[in-house]
């Protein structure tokens, strides 16, 4: 069976994002960009399923600027077999991404599509669920465990109350949470090998998807800044401060 893994190029999670002075967005020129951390976990899970003999092909797909090739190369170096870049300079919203992925899924017929649960730039947490709805398939979101048995996949999900387990009929969509696995670092030989793996290049138009944005960003602002308060020298001082705040136990 085939596994499709969509990946997004985003600001590296170690970089503190800066809002542009004109309020038009976040400055991503000249900052380090990487694969969205949740997508890395998705790639790792797909590759592990292949290594365990549960899947025979892992296809990574990215929608974005030409530079998104970098994150596809990372996916290939981690063990994906081939990649598809769907190139556009536009900012593509989750709904349009889901529509493009629906078209890719129609061509590739994957049994499993594993996505990151959210991208750390827009923090929308939508794409996997939207894709699942568009192709009328079940979803296991915020996954911390994925087990394939025959024509079903059992997914353990990190929910507000604890851990929920659901059983889904394949084909299915899974979105990866942090504790699903710990992604590997690609080794140098694998990075070299990845350069020879196939990468298709397409555009949203090839799939007939209108990517016109539905949301208009009117303004992007810094959140209210919190001032550092004061340091106290002892537990007694801390207790006094807490009591002054009305905390009594």
């Amino acid at each position: 069976m085939k596994i499709l893994v969509p990946v997004k190029r985003v600001i590296d999670y170690n970089v503190k994002p800066r809002v542009k002075p004109d309020g038009s967005g976040v400055d991503i020129a000249n900052v380090k960009m990487s694969m969205n951390p949740f997508d890395e976990i998705a790639v790792e899970e797909a590759v592990r399923l292949k290594e365990a003999g549960k899947a025979d092909e892992v296809i990574a797909v990215s929608i974005g600027a030409p530079k998104s090739k970098d994150v596809l190369r990372t996916a290939l170096a981690m063990g994906a077999d081939r990649a598809i870049l769907i190139q556009t300079e536009a900012e593509v919203e989750p709904l349009a991404v889901a529509k493009i992925l629906k078209a890719v899924a129609a061509e590739e017929n994957p049994q499993l599509i594993i996505l990151g649960k959210q991208a750390i730039d827009d923090d929308s947490n939508q794409t996997g669920q939207m894709l699942a709805a568009l192709i009328d398939r079940p979803q296991g979101t915020f996954a911390s465990k994925v087990e394939i048995d025959g024509d079903h996949v059992t997914v353990t999900r990190e929910v507000d109350d604890g851990l929920e387990t659901v059983k889904l009929a394949l084909p299915a969509i899974v979105t990866a949470d942090l504790r699903l696995n710990e992604p590997r670092y690609a080794s140098l030989p694998n990075i070299m090998k990845a350069k020879k793996k196939p990468m298709d290049e397409k555009t949203p138009e090839d799939y007939g998807v209108d990517i016109t944005a539905r949301l208009k960003t009117l303004k992007v602002a810094e959140p209210p800044v919190r001032q550092a308060g004061e340091k106290v020298g002892s537990v007694d001082e801390l207790v006094a401060k807490l009591k002054a705040l009305g905390v009594n136990a």
Partner: peptide, 13 residues
């Protein structure tokens, strides 16, 4: 957005 490091004002069409 960006883990709360920015606040976007958005309008739906």
């Amino acid at each position: 957005i960006y883990a709360g490091n920015a606040i976007a004002t958005v309008e739906s069409s």
